[in-house]
Design a protein around this nucleic acid. Structure first.
Length: 411
RNA sequence: GCCAGGGUAGGGUAGUUGGUUAUCCUAGAGGACUGUGGAUCCUCCGACCCGGGUUCGAAUCUCGGCCCUGGCCCCA
């Protein structure tokens, strides 16, 4: 039997309904903040992604040659595409631009819990606003969005300037090696590396910086930071908003183009792959031949949010089964139509079953049955049966609709 | 790319000194039952992940691959 490709998933209706429910909660939050949806191609020139992230990522992408000999890649993330689109289509649009997206991405990696080769991201990008309030808005929006889904998570906010200031005397490759140690909390390795670089005193400052939980402490360790005021403003805006977060100056986000504020969210009930959100301020447009516009954005790992939410029950549709005899069929079609016009999900038997068998099936799949035989066809009434209680009465279609609508799903 | 544990109908399972037609539950279809369901009974449907090897004979032993689950690495 044919199998689906490794790391991909099929979604049955129950799961899709749960996913759409959460998706729409995020969409609604984005809408309320003024972030409007954009859509970019599923595949792009390979170069778009290597320019952003380096040649190394080719190994972790779905890369292919099209019939015209073009080097293309399935998108491994969406920020690069959005910024490309901004340069191509919207450079002169009034700033700031508030955009969001919900779309699938592809990465060629070893699957595990919360990590798939096709996965969905809900992200936002705020383009062209370079202020403390812009940074704060994006973080508050991220928190709002995660709150709307119902996940329990920890949000960590940091700023790259502190670490960059401590490391400013090191060459970029050395900086990267040090950051790698910090990211893994490998303090022994860090010490060895710094000793080898003849900078042993840095080890203490760096590890202390990671332990800092207030701006004041961080400023004391890292010294005179460029943009100090902006950082203070951003953090005081977050504090004023009353949102929950913690400061963490060890967030490195691994990428050179992040410029300042960075933040990450972690689900409290997931294992190794528990990061559900990542974002920060960055400058990327100039890489793709655009202006050096400031941007700030984040992406939420939608599938991980769903894993974290687990088997949470979602509200189900009320289902009405239209059950009829041969004589009642024409009237039944008419009744089904007006039920649907009233917004009620209505399903008819397609198997030419007898009345008993139709009801047997309805009892497994529906909340109510509308029974229509010769008697109902002649009187233009319907028999409404509550499949939960067995209670049954004959009334006109409009009253039946009212009854079903007032009752709701009872499965 | 690395490590561990797995893979028998749609879902869940039984099945080793290798041996008839692979067990049971559930789901699905049909019937007993052409104006009223969930019970019961009957019938049907449907599986040994793939390939090589050993053997008279492999779900079972063996090798390779694929896939799943979790972890490492990575994580844009």
């Amino acid at each position: 039997m044919l199998q689906k490709p490794r790391g991909t998933r099929d979604f049955l209706p129950d799961e899709m309904e749960a996913r759409r429910t959460i998706e729409w909660r995020m969409r609604e939050v984005a809408r309320l903040w003024g972030y409007r949806e954009v859509c970019t191609p599923e595949f792009e020139d390979l170069e778009l992604f290597t320019m952003r992230s380096g040649e190394g990522i080719v190994e972790e992408m779905y890369v292919f040659l099209d019939k015209g000999g073009r080097n293309l890649a399935l998108r491994p993330e969406i920020t690069a595409s959005v910024i490309r689109m901004y340069i191509n289509e919207a450079k002169v649009a009034p700033k700031p631009l508030r955009w969001c997206y919900f779309a699938d991405c592809f990465r060629y990696e070893r699957p595990q819990k919360g990590r798939y080769r096709q996965f969905w991201q809900f992200g936002v990008e705020l383009i062209g606003a370079d202020t403390a309030l812009a940074d704060a808005e994006v973080i508050m929006l991220a928190a709002d969005m995660l709150n709307a889904t119902g996940v329990t998570y920890d949000l960590k906010v940091g700023h790259l300037s502190f670490m960059k200031n401590l490391l400013k005397d090191l060459e970029p490759p050395a900086q990267r090696r040090v950051m790698a140690h910090l990211d893994k909390k490998d303090y022994d390795g860090l010490k060895a590396t710094l000793d080898a670089m003849d900078k042993p005193e840095l080890a203490h400052s760096l590890t202390t910086l990671l332990e800092c939980r207030t701006l004041k402490e961080a400023f004391e360790i890292a010294g005179n930071i460029p943009g100090k005021e902006r950082i203070e403003q951003t953090i005081s805006l977050l504090d004023a908003s009353g949102m929950k977060y913690s400061l963490n100056f060890g967030i490195a986000r691994g990428l050179d183009y992040y410029t300042g504020t960075v933040f990450e969210g972690f689900a409290q009930n997931l294992g190794a792959e528990n990061q559900i959100l990542g974002g920060g301020t960055y400058r990327l447009a100039h890489l793709f031949g655009g202006d050096d516009v400031a941007s700030c954005g984040f992406a939420i790992g939608f599938d991980r949010v769903m894993v974290s939410l687990g088997e949470t029950q979602h509200k189900k549709d009320t289902v009405v089964a239209i059950v009829c005899t041969h004589e009642g069929r024409d009237h039944a079609l008419e009744v089904a139509r007006i039920f649907r016009e009233a917004g009620i999900r209505s399903e008819m038997d397609l198997m030419e079953r007898g009345l008993g068998a139709q009801l047997a099936h309805a009892s497994k799949t529906a909340d109510f049955a509308i029974v229509i035989g010769q008697r109902e066809a002649e009187s233009k009434n319907v028999t409404l049966r509550n499949l939960q209680t067995g209670e049954q009465k004959t009334l006109d279609p409009k009253s039946a609709i009212a009854e079903v609508a007032s009752h709701g799903a009872c499965r």
